[in-house]
Design a protein around this nucleic acid. Structure first.
Length: 300
DNA sequence: GGGTGTTTAGTAGTCG
DNA sequence: CGACTACTAAACACCC
């Protein structure tokens, strides 16, 4: 954190201290209650700066569905900041333009999960995850060393992420990272704001047999699988993820998910499939999604 | 050498 | 209040 920006994980709101305010953590909560600071809602997370490709609308719809952003964030609005379709979120006394980007209300685990899930191959390299996060959330274009360290830590530390090592036939830097097949119910109601429970590999029902025949061979003592690009091109795991997601918490009609949360991946997928084609955002010619079928071709 | 991956430690917020 | 979760920092090893 910057020491000036604070996330209220319970509400999903992000608070920014006014200039000159103390960096002490206590003051942030005074701000959160509207005493001295300004409350920003989701529409402030993504800024169109650097977005020049009109195809961004597709991604915008996805983000709006997630409650993340409008591509026209009310940075200069004088009244209460509105969340798209959800009414006033916070009515701080002196809303002011954000000098920097607000931190998204997602944990790193959420961000990584979203990046992986929305990728065509359901697995990304570390650098691809970095890029996805930075492309969607300008906040993360700063202090990269700090949050990228946290991302690496999250990938290693959390059992919900599995490392897919490259085969010798597929050389390159770094491994691919995928979601554990049984990690689908981590997020309450599919909401990415906060995990319902921590995924632990000890509870996993995914066996080596499930992975066998899919191009993956599992290392029994680690959360590592091996990718054989000749054999399966990760498609089976991809399907497995889709089915897992669709029939677990990601399905709006699932008994454990009686509503479609606006921060849920189901909302993202619904928007993507039924409203606006999910076109890649292009920054400097690099496409976030253009390499969906070519995970190894993503380079920056 | 830089990127990647692992691990440990400390701190803080959330939840039951 | 304790357990859990998340974030951050740091150190270290490995690999391309």
């Amino acid at each position: 954190m910057d020491g000036h920006e604070h996330l209220d994980r319970s509400s999903g709101f992000f608070y920014r201290e006014t200039e000159g305010s103390s960096a002490a953590t206590n003051s942030s909560y005074m701000n959160a209650h509207g005493i001295t600071g300004t409350c920003y809602m989701n529409a402030d997370y993504v800024n169109p700066v650097g977005v020049t490709n009109p195809s961004v609308s597709g991604q915008s719809s996805l983000l709006v569905a997630a409650g993340v952003a409008s591509m026209n964030p009310p940075l200069q609005s004088a009244g209460p900041v509105l969340s798209p379709g959800f009414g006033p979120i916070c009515s701080g006394p002196t809303p002011r333009r954000a000098s920097t980007y607000a931190k998204p209300p997602y944990s790193y685990i959420s961000l990584i999960s979203m990046a992986i899930q929305q990728s065509g191959t359901k697995m990304l390299t570390l650098n691809q995850i970095y890029q996805w996060i930075m492309d969607l959330f300008p906040f993360y274009r700063q202090n990269q060393q700090r949050w990228q360290n946290s991302v690496r830590h999250s990938l290693s530390f959390n059992d919900c992420f599995i490392k897919v090592t490259r085969s010798k036939d597929w050389p390159g830097k770094g491994s691919f990272w995928a979601l554990h097949p049984d990690s689908g119910d981590m997020f309450q109601n599919g909401c990415f704001l906060r995990r319902q429970k921590r995924f632990r590999s000890g509870t996993k029902a995914c066996t080596d047999a499930q992975r066998s025949g899919s191009g993956f061979s599992s290392s029994p003592q680690s959360k590592q699988v091996h990718l054989n690009p000749r054999r399966a091109e990760v498609v089976p795991l991809q399907h497995y993820h889709y089915q897992q997601a669709a029939h677990q918490n990601l399905e709006p009609n699932h008994p454990h998910c009686s509503f479609s949360h606006r921060f849920s991946i189901s909302s993202l997928m619904f928007e993507q499939q039924n409203q606006t084609p999910y076109l890649p955002v292009t920054y400097g010619g690099d496409s976030v999604l253009s390499e969906q079928n070519h995970p190894g071709s993503f380079s920056h």
